[in-house]
């Protein structure tokens, strides 16, 4: 269980998060949604000690800022929103970095296995810098996966913290990656993902926190959060939540007429 209480962050003098409460359970995909600049990335950065914050973040009851780095690295892996690499490393070398940080004693064949899972089999020898944005994003995801490969370790559930993990992917790979994350949660791991796409969120999230102006408007199951009024309030435009004829999964269409 990850619990963030009363998180406040100021960047360059302006308050960006103003008392955010957020929690996530292992076994679930928890997503953070909200308009641009609402503080999604900042919340993720606070919960991973990248930004200094006031408030408290606990992982299974332990204050996360008191845990040593190597112990945190064994329990959670973090995917940043964008990643540039300083030197011409190969895909294999990048993914292997996750393996060396892992608490598991795994063979290097794990690297290929992870690449296979994100649909990049055979990319081991390619230069990271010579890949497309979407391919780079999946290499980073493979690296993060090898770091916490088994969803449950000796110390309890393992966690994935992901900032827009599918933002540069085509629709096929979006579904592939989201299914992979859902399977990770199903097996007992915790997944926290900042999401841009509300329809993918509706399809895969078990729990959704919706942010606006540095506050959580509501956190709960999709049925409680993906409502016309809440989404319209958060995003500042009229949207209507619908259900596809075939299933019970809601989908969101913007209403052009009401934006103007």
């Amino acid at each position: 269980m990850l619990d963030a209480r009363d998180i406040r962050v100021s960047l360059a003098g302006t308050p960006v998060l103003q008392g955010v409460h957020f929690r996530a359970r292992p076994g679930q995909v928890t997503t953070i949604v909200g308009p641009n600049g609402s503080g999604k990335t900042t919340l993720l950065r606070a919960m991973t000690q990248e930004a200094s914050y006031s408030g408290e973040v606990t992982l299974d009851g332990e204050d996360i800022s008191r845990l040593p780095g190597w112990q945190l690295a064994a329990r959670r892996a973090v995917l940043p929103q964008a990643s540039r690499i300083a030197f011409p490393f190969t895909v294999f070398e990048i993914v292997r970095l996750g393996l060396t940080a892992s608490a598991e004693a795994a063979q290097e064949s794990r690297v290929s296995e992870a690449l296979d899972r994100v649909g990049l089999a055979g990319f081991e020898g390619r230069f990271y810098q010579e890949l497309s944005g979407g391919e780079q994003q999946r290499v980073q995801l493979a690296r993060v996966l090898t770091q916490v490969w088994e969803p449950i370790g000796a110390e309890g559930a393992r966690w994935l913290f992901l900032d827009e993990p599918v933002s540069s992917l085509d629709i096929g790979h979006q579904l592939e990656v989201m299914s992979l994350l859902a399977a990770y949660a199903q097996a007992g791991g915790g997944v926290i993902a900042v999401m841009h796409d509300l329809n993918l969120t509706a399809m895969y999230a078990d729990d959704i926190a919706i942010l606006a102006d540095g506050r959580v408007l509501r956190q709960g199951p999709p049925s409680a959060v993906l409502t016309d009024s809440l989404l319209s309030e958060a995003y500042g435009c009229a949207v209507r939540v619908n259900a596809a004829p075939a299933g019970d999964v809601p989908f969101i269409l913007p209403h052009m007429a009401s934006i103007s």
């Binding site: 940043p80 990643s83 070398e93 970095l97 940080a101």
Partner: peptide, 20 residues
Amino acid sequence: ARSLNALALGEAPAAHLGIP
């Protein structure tokens, strides 16, 4: 050596890999 490899990803990602 291992820390410098991780640092190629950036400081924050290196820290998340457990590098001091």
